[in-house]
């Protein structure tokens, strides 16, 4: 039986009728057509599906969509401001070569955002810890770490 949930998605109120077993990832990708959130493993191991739930990074592929009822969800599509400007973290990723194939990028950017929102001047170790759940095969992570450092004005 379908259940009704309401939540705030990228600043806009959303209501959805969903099957109780539906994951947040599939709600976002299949029902709401927000395909910026990626499915890399479907088992919560790679972080490609990372979104922010009340500002905290979560693996949307293993999170039941029911859990976001009444909460605040931010996806990569929500990072651009109303004027179409990229978030400083996004700009830093572009400028520091932190993007190759790009499949891990949305999740990586959101993990970085969660970190910087909570800890605006992280150490390199803190940056590495914050993105340790986001796998990347192309970059070897170093330019991603540099980008996050740059986005924190360090």
């Amino acid at each position: 039986m379908k259940k009704s949930i309401s939540f705030v998605l990228n600043g806009e109120p959303v209501r959805a009728e969903i099957e109780p077993h539906l994951t947040l990832l599939h709600l976002l990708r299949d029902e709401l057509e927000l395909t910026g959130t990626k499915e890399g493993c479907g088992m919560g191991e790679c972080g490609a599906c990372t979104v922010l739930l009340d500002g905290r990074p979560v693996n949307s592929c293993i999170l039941p969509a029911m859990e976001v009822d009444g909460k605040n969800v931010t996806t990569i599509e929500g990072l651009i401001d109303a004027q179409g400007n990229l978030h400083p973290i996004q700009k830093a990723f572009i400028e520091h070569g932190a993007i190759q194939c790009g499949f891990c990028t949305p999740g990586m950017v959101l993990s970085a955002k969660a970190l910087l929102d909570e800890n605006p001047k992280p150490t390199e170790e803190e940056i590495r810890n914050a993105i340790a759940g986001n796998l990347c095969r192309c970059t070897g992570y170093l330019q991603i770490v540099q980008a996050i450092k740059a986005a924190s004005n360090q």
């Binding site: 959130t37 996004q90 993007i99 790009g102």
Partner: peptide
Amino acid sequence: PKTDAEEKVTGRAVY
């Protein structure tokens, strides 16, 4: 920067 970086960093790139 890579020419498609903006598309990728905003989640608009279509895989």
